[in-house]
Design a protein around this nucleic acid. Structure first.
Length: 676
DNA sequence: AGTCTTTCCGTCAGG
DNA sequence: TCCTGACGGAAA
């Protein structure tokens, strides 16, 4: 890489030459970047199993934007130059020949790319940003890159077609621009032409976004999410590792015991974790299905076999002791494998290089990877671990004591309580209350639903339950309220009465009755569903409040089931996608405010769709809570994207010394809560 | 024929 | 009913 004459190796430039290159970078009309890994691949090569270590960054400095001509697409234009920045793996104090001028140059170049005002392009920009933040720590702070607007073809292509599984660079090239160049040339030549093509591809995607009216969403929302996500990944959450280890051991013992009980109840040995083997025991050996013919036992989705799901086992639990044991086993198994051992395994395997030696370390900090382009609805998702799926409620486990005169011991396990703030800090969570339902009220303009949200001091689902049941608000039980919630969402997302009856535990007839009465009470909701489907049929796609779109080719399918599914997806997308828009905008607004403040230091740790989790200095909790609440509720009106909601937004803020024990923070009323 | 890897399915945590 | 990701077993 560094022996090619077309590439300027920063390490071999003189101090004077570096000054010139830096000035050139500042004057360049565009910068195109890619990370280079130790195995010689770049960000534009197809994904590998194990992400190789980063060894440097290649920067293409484009002097002139409008250079076109035969053959120029994949070759360097005259006046363009390429600089290679080697990223030193060792800290400065451990280097044999520290070159402080080179460190400074690298830092300045990265700063120019991440906070400069000219056009910057990078495929998978979030990875580059996160690497820069980690590598330059503590010299490059996340606040410094908050205004960064690196363009990313992966994000652009996803907005154009969110259903397309985020494809590799060469797939994007052939889909949106032209055939990728044939292999054969040297690796350096390939990389250089890829950089040129990356620039061209970006220009092509830019005009496609403009043509589809997606440019504003891209530029004002999705691009600004990149630094937010990069910063979120570079903040680590403290985990009580010892508590996790103890819990793992305890759950292991509990599983062994439940396994024995299951074998005894079944009268044979079998693999308790296998749904196939359990099916054989329950329905071929014990023949439990014959003893509950009045009930409608669920079947598996593909091959119409008896299901062994939770719903089935709950129906069978009075006939035999086995189903209850299995339910408990599954609960313990899920907690142990995914939320205790799973989390522990995400903390291992990281390596830190120290004085030339690479040694495995086991820190008690963790950070997820956040994905911007993996959900069709525009939501973000998390992996390794999946922070968005940690159990909300603690789980009770009864340990039977085989000692005379001892009562069974009840232990509660709560994975969220393993996450704790750093010393002197507090967790603060901000939750958008019933965003999807509020958006439904806005989208449908249903007068009754709007009225519910405009009358303050009432719980929405309680009001809904009282309206549709025709009883007084204080006569509504918590069960009624829960039912109201289920009914609302089942209607909006097109669930049949069968499905609803399964969830509520009532007859299908009664479930159907509930649905009818809901739609009768809120007529415009029905109209909204119909018009959304109609619009999808007419133009082939649907749009969220901020202009996010999803094309649904299957609405034209001749197959009834396929077509109906596409129609449900259309309705769901408009509501869920709009909620995603709002939540992203909230993250960006808060990020910008904190970044431009000299005193605030709150860090975003996680996003749980409609909830944001921050780590805040103890002394700033109140101030930040007010800021977050006001910022989020003010999103009722967003001028730059033309959003004006007919409903007020409500945000609940809570804080605590562990993620498992958060209590609501009651703040003074603000002006937004009574706006109309 | 036994072992390894990959893919699919069922189940369940979240919203 | 929609949208995710993780895990373990079964099949390929």
């Amino acid at each position: 890489m560094t022996s090619d004459p077309r590439v300027k190796d920063a390490g071999r430039l003189s101090v004077e030459e570096r000054v010139v290159v830096l000035e050139e970078a500042r004057q360049a009309s565009a910068l195109v970047l890619t990370m280079v890994y130790q195995d010689g691949t770049t960000q534009m090569d197809p994904e590998q199993k194990l992400v190789p270590l980063v060894c440097g960054v290649l920067v293409l400095l484009k002097k002139d934007l409008e250079q076109t001509g035969p053959g120029l697409e994949e070759r360097l234009a005259p006046g363009d130059s390429v600089v290679y920045l080697r990223l030193e793996q060792n800290p400065a104090w451990a280097q044999s020949h520290p070159d402080h001028n080179l460190d400074l140059f690298t830092r300045e170049m990265l700063l120019q790319a991440t906070s400069g005002s000219q056009l910057v392009v990078c495929y998978k920009a979030k990875e580059l940003l996160r690497t820069a933040l980690q590598h330059q720590r503590p010299h490059l702070q996340w606040k410094q890159v908050s205004s960064c607007q690196i363009q990313d073809p992966q994000v652009a292509a996803w907005l154009l077609d969110p259903a397309d599984p985020s494809s590799c660079f060469s797939d994007l090239l052939s889909k949106h621009y032209r055939r990728p160049p044939a292999l054969g040339a040297s690796k350096v030549s390939q990389v250089l032409s890829s950089l040129s093509l990356l620039y061209r591809l970006n220009m092509e995607l830019q005009s496609k976004l403009q043509a589809q009216e997606l440019w504003e969403l891209y530029f004002n929302l999705e691009l600004l999410m990149i630094p937010v996500l990069a910063a979120m990944e570079s903040h680590r959450i403290h985990v009580d590792k010892e508590a996790l280890r103890r819990t793992s051991q305890m759950l292991g013992a509990q599983m062994k015991q439940l396994e024995q009980e299951a074998h005894q109840a079944a009268g044979q040995m079998f693999l308790v974790s296998s749904s196939t083997q359990l099916r054989t025991v329950l329905f071929e050996k014990l023949r439990l299905q014959h003893r509950c013919e009045n009930k409608n036992l669920p079947k598996t989705l593909n091959k119409q076999k008896h299901s062994t799901s939770e719903a089935t086992l709950l129906q069978l639990q009075d006939l035999h002791p086995l189903p209850r044991i299995i339910l408990e086993y599954r609960q313990v198994h899920k907690i142990k494998s995914t939320f205790v051992d799973g989390i522990l395994s995400c903390m291992r395997g990281k390596v830190r290089t120290q004085g030339g030696f690479t040694q495995p370390i086991s820190e008690s900090f963790i950070s997820s990877t956040w994905h911007q382009t993996s959900a069709v609805t525009g939501r973000i998702s998390a992996k390794h671990p999946n922070f968005q799926a940690l159990p909300r409620q603690p789980v009770k486990i009864t340990k039977k004591q085989y000692v005379q005169g001892k009562e069974p011991e009840v232990v509660t396990v709560h994975p969220r309580s393993m996450f704790i703030p750093q010393d002197g800090c507090t967790f603060l969570a901000a939750d958008f209350c019933q965003v999807e339902l509020r958006l439904l009220a806005h989208l449908s303009s249903d007068p009754e639903l709007l009225r519910v949200f405009h009358s303050p001091q009432t719980d929405v689902f309680t009001t809904l339950a009282s309206q549709w049941k025709g009883v007084n608000k204080n006569e509504v039980s918590s069960e009624d309220r829960e039912h109201a919630k289920r009914i609302v969402y089942s209607v909006v997302y097109g669930a049949g009465r069968e499905r609803l009856s399964g969830i509520l535990g009532v007859s299908a007839e009664q479930a159907g009755h509930f649905q009818d009465s809901f739609l009768h009470c809120y007529r415009e909701v029905q109209t909204f569903i119909h018009s959304t489907i109609q619009q999808c049929h007419k133009q082939g796609y649907v749009v969220s409040i901020m202009g996010r779109r999803r094309t649904l080719p299957h609405v034209h399918s001749a197959d009834w089931a396929i077509r109906m599914q596409a129609e449900r997806q259309a309705v769901n997308f408009v509501v869920q996608g709009s909620a995603a828009d709002l939540c992203k905008m909230a993250m960006i607004r808060i990020f910008t405010t904190v970044s431009t403040s000299t005193s605030l230091s709150a860090r975003l740790l996680a996003q749980l769709h409609d909830e944001l989790l921050y780590e805040v200095d103890d002394s700033q909790v109140e101030e930040f809570a007010v800021l977050v609440k006001n910022t989020m509720e003010s999103l009722q009106h967003i001028d730059c994207l033309g959003v004006h909601l007919k409903v007020p937004l409500k945000v609940a803020v809570s804080s605590g010394k562990s993620w498992g024990s958060m209590s609501e923070l009651h703040l003074p009323q603000t002006s937004h809560s009574s706006s109309s």
